[in-house]
Computed example of a mutant assay.
Amino acid sequence: MRVELHVPSRPELGIRQLWLRDPEMMSYNAGWDVRYAGYDPITGCIDWPESEWSEFEARLRIPASQQGYYFVRDADDDQPVGDAYYEVSGSAASIGITIVPTRRSQGLGALVLGLLIERIWRDTDVLEIVNEFEDDREPAVRVHRRAGFVPDQVTCDDWGRPTRTWRLIRPGERAVSG
């Protein structure tokens, strides 16, 4: 199986809109303390009307040294199978990956995380990559641990339930925080 990162075009943003409306796709996102008018805390879905797409497209034009948003495509059939992003803040890049429900548990998370790590090390000067999620998301824990991420000792409660930050230090650097 081969996957690739692809910056979506405007017509492809309809796929993202469908994903954000899909309760199965967004189930990981349910129950958070999020202050956004279009967020449904029961399903985790997010209303993303086409009127907001131009603002999102402007974000896609921000240099890769500061952020990246990508569709994940199955390179064998050219179909989107999820998305991945990073945002740089200070010396760290925060990341996120979502795989469509029908393609989960097939090893895609590890492949995508590897591609995202390569892209961040290549395109940014950050010293660490971080991701924050709940301890009971066992597939995410396994994938991050295998990629070399190390969990912080303490959890935080910033979003209404406990999450832990996982950190990957740039090769040749020392731990920044945590």
Rank of each mutant, 00 (worst) to 15 (best):
D33V: 10
D33M: 08
V34L: 03
V34C: 01
A37F: 01
G38W: 02
G38C: 09
D40N: 02
P41C: 07
I42S: 06
I42Q: 08
I42L: 11
I42P: 00
G44V: 08
C45M: 02
I46H: 00
I46W: 00
D47C: 13
W48Q: 10
P49Q: 10
P49L: 06
E50T: 12
E50G: 09
E50P: 03
E50L: 10
S51W: 08
E52I: 13
E52W: 00
E52T: 12
E52R: 04
E52F: 03
W53Q: 13
S54V: 13
F56I: 13
E57Q: 05
E57T: 12
E57K: 06
A58T: 15
A58F: 11
R59N: 15
R59K: 14
R59Q: 15
I62Q: 03
S65G: 08
Q66A: 14
Q66I: 15
Q66V: 15
G68L: 04
G68E: 04
G68K: 05
Y69C: 07
F71Q: 05
V72E: 05
V72Q: 02
R73G: 05
R73C: 09
R73F: 01
D74S: 02
D76Q: 11
D77T: 11
D77Y: 10
D77S: 10
D77K: 05
Q79F: 14
Q79R: 15
P80D: 06
P80M: 01
P80G: 08
G82C: 05
D83M: 09
D83N: 07
D83Q: 10
A84W: 08
Y85I: 15
Y85K: 13
Y85T: 15
Y86S: 04
Y86N: 06
E87W: 01
V88H: 04
V88P: 02
S91I: 05
S91L: 12
A92S: 06
A92G: 09
